[in-house]
Design a protein around this nucleic acid. Structure first.
Ligand code: FES
Ligand code: FES
Lengths: 134, 134
DNA sequence: TATTTATCCTTCCGGTTTAGTAGGAAAAAA
DNA sequence: TTTTTTCCTACTAAACCGGAAGGATAAATA
C-alpha cells in the first residue's frame, strides 16, 4: 500500500512553492529540481494536473516559474494527493460502494473505513502551512 | 495508494477463520470461497504465506480445512497485512531510511511518519477479535 | 532582433506488479 | 478405492509505474 512517486514528489514540489509564497519572484522548476534532486522533465508532468486544478499559477519565459494560486493555509495535503494519485482511500469501496459486490455483508468494511478516516484526519486535512512548520 | 486484493481478501479469509475459532471442525477453503465469493484457487495462494508465518494450521483430506493457530485476540490485522502485502507503510523510508537519498533534509518525512502512525494505531494494532465484533 | 530562459504539449517505453488461472500430486477420511 | 481437501509449481494477460524524448511557444534580456 504505497504512495507512488507522483504523490511523494508532488508534495515536495508543493512544499517548495509554499515556502516561496509571498516572495517577489516565482519559483522555476529548474530550481525546484535542483533542490529536490528530481528531474525537470518529471516535475513538468506532475505540475500539469496541479495547475489544471487551480492550485498553481505560472509565468512563462525568463524569470518565470510557478507560484501558489492560494495561501498555503488554504491548500491541504489531501487535495494535492487527490490530484496526483486519484482517490487516496486504501480500499475503493469506501468512496464507491458499487466497487464491492459483497458490500452489504462485508466483514471488513468498517475496518477499512476506520483506516480511511485515520488517514484523512492525520494528514489529508493538514494544510501546506502546517506541513511546513511541522 | 491502494490495498491490493491480497490484503483485502486475506483479511476476509482470516476473519472467517476467526469466526470459526473454537468450533470442532476446521473450515475448508471451499466453504470460505463460497461465503466470500472468491475462487478457491486464489485463496489457496493467499493462505500459503499465512500458514508459513504460523498464523494458521491445516488438516488435509476429507473434513479437513484450516484453523487459526492462535486465539483471535492474539493476531492483529497488521500482522496479516504485513504477511500478504509486505511492509504496509505508505512511504518506504519510514521503515527503511536508506530508501531516500534526501532523508536528512526531506521536508515531507514527518508527514509520512504521521500518516504511518495513524494507520498503525487505527487498524494495524487491532486484533481479529476486535475486528469481528466491530 | 537574436538569444536565453522558461513553460507547455504530446508521445513513447521498459520493467514491475497485480490478479488471478491451470494442472496435477499427496494425504486423509469415508 | 473413491472422495475430499490441502499442497505445489508454473504460467500469463493486463495494468501500472517511473520516468525520458523531442520539440513548440512565450517572455525577458542583451
Ligand atoms: S472490501 Fe469493499 S465492502 Fe468489503
Ligand atoms: S520521502 Fe523519504 S525521506 Fe522524504
Amino acid at each position: 500500500m504505497k504512495l507512488s512517486t507522483r504523490g511523494r514528489y508532488g508534495t515536495r514540489l508543493m512544499l517548495q512553492l509554499a515556502a516561496n509564497y509571498g516572495k517577489k519572484t516565482p519559483l522555476p522548476l529548474t530550481e525546484i529540481a535542483r533542490r529536490e534532486e528530481i528531474s525537470v522533465k518529471y516535475l513538468e508532468q506532475l505540475i500539469i494536473p496541479l495547475k489544471a486544478a487551480g492550485l498553481i499559477e505560472s509565468r512563462r519565459g525568463a524569470h518565470g516559474g510557478y507560484v501558489l494560486a492560494k495561501d498555503p493555509d488554504e491548500i491541504t495535503i489531501g487535495q494535492v494527493l487527490q490530484i496526483l494519485e486519484g482517490n487516496i482511500s486504501p480500499v475503493p469501496c469506501v468512496k464507491d460502494p458499487s466497487f464491492c459486490i459483497k458490500y452489504e455483508t462485508c466483514n471488513t468494511r468498517k475496518l477499512w473505513e476506520t483506516m480511511d478516516k485515520a488517514i484523512s484526519k492525520s494528514v489529508c486535512e493538514m494544510t501546506l502551512k502546517e506541513a511546513l512548520s511541522a
